[in-house]
Design a protein around this nucleic acid. Sequence first.
DNA 1: ACTTATTCCTGCGTGC
DNA 2: TGCACGCAGGAATAAG
Length: 282
Amino acid sequence: MPELPEVETSKRHIKQYLLNAKILNIKSFVSKLRWEINPDIKKIFNNTVILKIDRIGKYILINTSNKNTLILHLGMSGYLRINEANVKKIKHDHIIMNIECITGEKKCLIFNDQRRFGHIDFHYTSLLKKHFLIKNLGIDGLSKSLKYDFLNKIFLNKTIVIKNALLDQKIICGIGNIYASEILFYSKIHPLKRVNNLCKNEINFLLFNINVVLSKAVLSGGTTIKDYKQPNGKIGYFKQKLKVYGREKLKCYDCSSIIFKLNINKRATYICPDCQKNKLVN
DNA sequence: ACTTATTCCTGCGTGC
DNA sequence: TGCACGCAGGAATAAG
């Protein structure tokens, strides 16, 4: 679910409440999400102040005054929401962080995750890049440093197909299954094309469209297929703008050919067979 | 050093 | 209605 645009939308929204707020306490109602939750999380952040909120790939990073960083990943079905303090829990609310905002108001940040593929952890801010979830991440999908030379160098010696390369968080982080299909459609590249066969123009057009698709999706508040919600409770509105994802058997908006669904690594992939027919071309 | 399969969860739609 | 099955936005880990 939540890919870069959904995580970025969530980050931006919670930031207005969390920045400079005091964490009163963190409560966890499960012992594990994807992994065991370090029980120290319940007290180590008590009475700390939130100094900075960042995102890398699909991770939200919250720096606090005790020189720690909270690491949040929303998994497949997770979302965050801001509520008034002491609001009643609903199903799959797993973590609640009670805060006192800079305005003096008391609120809480709630992490809800039906499938529990998400995770919450923390690490010393200074050693964050050594954390097992962070250390192998590649360059962020919206980073200004994501340029031709960087990507070309990686693609040169690889034989994996481009769809899998886009999903590989060790290369570029933040792109997931929805945006991989969309980016390749925009780029007119077949998802099964091998990365070492991409020419300079294709890589540059791909880079351009990674930025276009992710930026546009952020502006729409992300994509809601099923569970995802913005922290204000609204859904994301990019679904209406998807050109191929989820549009099997419907007409391509550009050429009226029928959108086709295929599986790559067991994951749904959508293409316009006419707009992206360069599969075998070098 | 690669790629591919398995695994962790809940819930929904489909077909019998 | 009920049940079995496949599938869903992720990704580390194990196995090949």
